[in-house]
């Protein structure tokens, strides 16, 4: 069953001078119950912006200018803020980017989770709240009694676990985790990945994992959405993205990422920089860095639409065609080698 469906979502940021910056354009994806989606792309491509808009917590300057966010068929962008409060944290919950460093330093971890539970009237009494907090902490692998400690007495990995426990407080169906492993040490990273996998299995959670680490995505996610400059570049199941990528950006991104299973292999960076929002290219946003477009007029003029080139495999590139795309793509007359 499709739990979440995002259609054609576009988001602007309004600057102090009243200029609208188009941070996200025409984003489309869906998430089945119990599955995991990885959202990847370079810094600034709009990952956090998209996730915040799903739970309607965009910063003040953010405006959703188009699109639908359907949760079990209901458009969350159309309901009242009051109705939204019944959805946020309870149906769709989020671990914010950097949240582990934003815990209140002068309050115990337990009291911070208790507060979340009471705020959302999940429990009837403070005693119940404490009991539930203990259960949540144990769920993420922290002994309940350590809840009495303060955040600074927790290691980085434990703080990340506590933040995950907090996001699970209201039994959500969907958990969005924004860069949950970034800035953690290798082994702690692996522990958090393992925890998220286990929670997903045990609670039948749908998971959206936002990261720039392609390795983490390959390990954890069923589907992958590759974003570039606020648009979807490619969207498919994980195997397709990693083994049969069709969008030039996905292909370059993979070549720029070292693979520990192939030590000594070549790395190729992507020349140039991601576009600035105040200076977006008029056509395809990847055009200035694209090795395939090579100045094609259509690439310079038009934003490529997202096309389903084969079942479940979506690509936004003028030069990738439907169906026989595979043969064409590798034909030397059609492509310059990477």
């Amino acid at each position: 069953m499709t739990t979440l469906e995002v259609r054609n979502l576009s988001i602007n940021y309004i600057t102090d001078d009243g200029v609208a910056l188009n941070a996200v354009e025409g984003l489309t994806f869906s998430l089945e119950q119990g599955r995991s989606l990885g959202l990847v792309g370079e810094s600034g491509c709009g990952k956090t912006t998209v996730m915040l808009s799903l739970i309607r917590l965009l910063p003040e300057a953010g405006r959703i200018v188009n699109g639908q966010v359907l949760f079990e068929g209901r458009d969350l962008l159309q309901i009242s803020e009051r109705d939204m409060q019944a959805v946020r944290w309870k149906d769709v919950s989020m671990v914010f980017q950097g949240a582990m460093n934003a815990l209140n330093p002068v309050r115990t971890v337990e009291s911070q989770i208790v507060e979340v539970l009471q705020l959302h009237s999940i429990v009837n009494s403070t005693k119940d709240a404490r009991i539930r907090t203990g259960v949540l902490l144990e769920l993420v692998g922290i002994t309940a009694k350590r809840g009495k400690q303060y955040p600074h007495q927790f290691s980085g990995g434990m703080r990340q676990r506590a933040v995950i426990a907090m996001a699970l407080a209201c039994n959500p169906r969907i958990l969005i985790a924004d860069e949950p492993t970034t800035a953690l040490d290798v082994m702690i990273q692996a522990q958090i990945i393992e925890l998220l996998e286990q929670l997903q299995r045990e609670l039948n959670l749908s998971l959206v994992l936002v990261t720039h680490d392609l390795g983490v995505v390959a390990e954890m996610c069923d589907d992958v959405l590759v974003m570039y400059g606020g648009t979807v570049a490619e969207y498919a199941n994980s195997d397709t993205i990693f083994n049969n990528p069709q969008h030039p950006y996905t292909q370059r991104l993979l070549k720029a990422f070292p693979d520990i299973a192939e030590p000594g292999s070549e790395l190729a960076s992507i020349p140039g920089n991601p576009p600035r929002l105040d200076n977006l290219p008029p056509g395809c946003r990847f055009e200035p860095r694209c090795h395939v477009g090579n100045g094609e007029p259509i690439c310079l003029k038009e934003l490529p639409p997202l096309v389903e080139i084969e079942p479940g495999h979506h690509v936004a590139c003028h030069l990738v065609d439907e169906k026989e795309s595979h043969e064409k793509n590798t034909h030397p007359s059609n492509r310059r080698p990477l």
């Binding site: 290798v186 983490v216 390959a218 990693f242 083994n243 299973a261």
Partner: peptide, 10 residues
């Protein structure tokens, strides 16, 4: 535990 960027190599 080093993540490998390919689901076939999990």
């Amino acid at each position: 535990v080093a993540p490998v960027p390919n689901p076939r190599k999990r």
